[in-house]
Design a protein around this nucleic acid. Sequence first.
DNA 1: GTCTATAAACCGATAGAC
DNA 2: GTCTATCGGTTTATAGAC
Lengths: 214, 214
Amino acid sequence: MTERTTTETADVGEPRRRGPYRKSRLVRRRILDAALEVFAQSGYRTGSVREIAARVGMSEAGLLHHFPSKSALLAAVLAHRDAQAAERVDRDTDDGLVALARLVGLARADADRPRVVELYCVISAEATAPDHPAHAFFVDRYARLRARIADSFERVRDAGQLRDGVDPQRAAAQMMAVWDGLQLQWLLDRSSVDVAAELADHVQRHLRVPLPRA
Amino acid sequence: MTERTTTETADVGEPRRRGPYRKSRLVRRRILDAALEVFAQSGYRTGSVREIAARVGMSEAGLLHHFPSKSALLAAVLAHRDAQAAERVDRDTDDGLVALARLVGLARADADRPRVVELYCVISAEATAPDHPAHAFFVDRYARLRARIADSFERVRDAGQLRDGVDPQRAAAQMMAVWDGLQLQWLLDRSSVDVAAELADHVQRHLRVPLPRA
DNA sequence: GTCTATAAACCGATAGAC
DNA sequence: GTCTATCGGTTTATAGAC
């Protein structure tokens, strides 16, 4: 993955050279946005590079100049969105309760990003197949997320805020599960469920104290 | 959908005529089984009629003699599996607790049918797109299931076995959600979760009395 | 950096022989 | 009921001009 930054353009006497690199970064960004939409709507396997290129307003070959292959493009999209989401939540807190509340807040904010929700729903299901290019990514992603949420539940327990008989590991798996499942129902019919409200209700059932709104 | 039964073959003096119809039904069955596997592994859009035909050991045209189109084949697969599952659970009970326990039992039995689990996971995510041939089927399926499970929770409440502050509608949506989400985690990594155990744990959290093992 | 042209493969569905 | 042959469409990716 050839990441190109503007800092490479330090050849004096040719200040105009900064132009193309800036454009390239902008084009890459527009490609990622278009790829997100297409992969969300049609999945990775059926979504075509051709359609992505059309949305960006360039040819297929032109697009593949920025990303070496279709699967590399998918990887870039996933990495891009995950990094963005991590930024939202990872401002560190020792407070487990706040961490859980932030996840619910993320679910609430996702109501305005149906395309992103769709992307993860469709691609994660596809990536269930061991030969899928994003299979390893999602296996790792889920293990990582489960561990992080379990850690939050442990902090909640250490603070004496967890109900008796709740295992942090299992609570983490169940929270992720109900989140994913609610998103599926919501994508099928927007009026059928309120993802954030149900997720909050689920988490609350494990706690001794009210979940902050954060 | 031309369903053909052996009862149509009652032309006396030609008992041999029974043969072809029996074979046709058998072939249809083998096609459905192969289609299930292919659609589960690759999804509807990427899974090809050609590969299904190859698994059955016949040509593409030969297969399409039994099902008029690819989407009709998917519809037949889904209808076939749903009818099979309904048979397992729908032996009527007025007892809501038993009904819920049977759903957990279904989840337990699904551990031996990863292909079926995969099919529903992949196709339901795909069918999120409004133009997917199975979109209406899944929207309807989820509404129906949610209503049926909500009804079970209501019966549990009427029997005084439901915890305070539990809304049957919301409990139904959450139960389906956690079920679907656990299946996704399980498909990504079989050792990561025990679907039936976590589902039972989740449901138990809504009840005053222990969920029977049924 | 973007294009046209093209390779090489695969797709669903149909026509018509047997 | 099953086949071969084929049509018209799609796909990812590459070659090479500009």
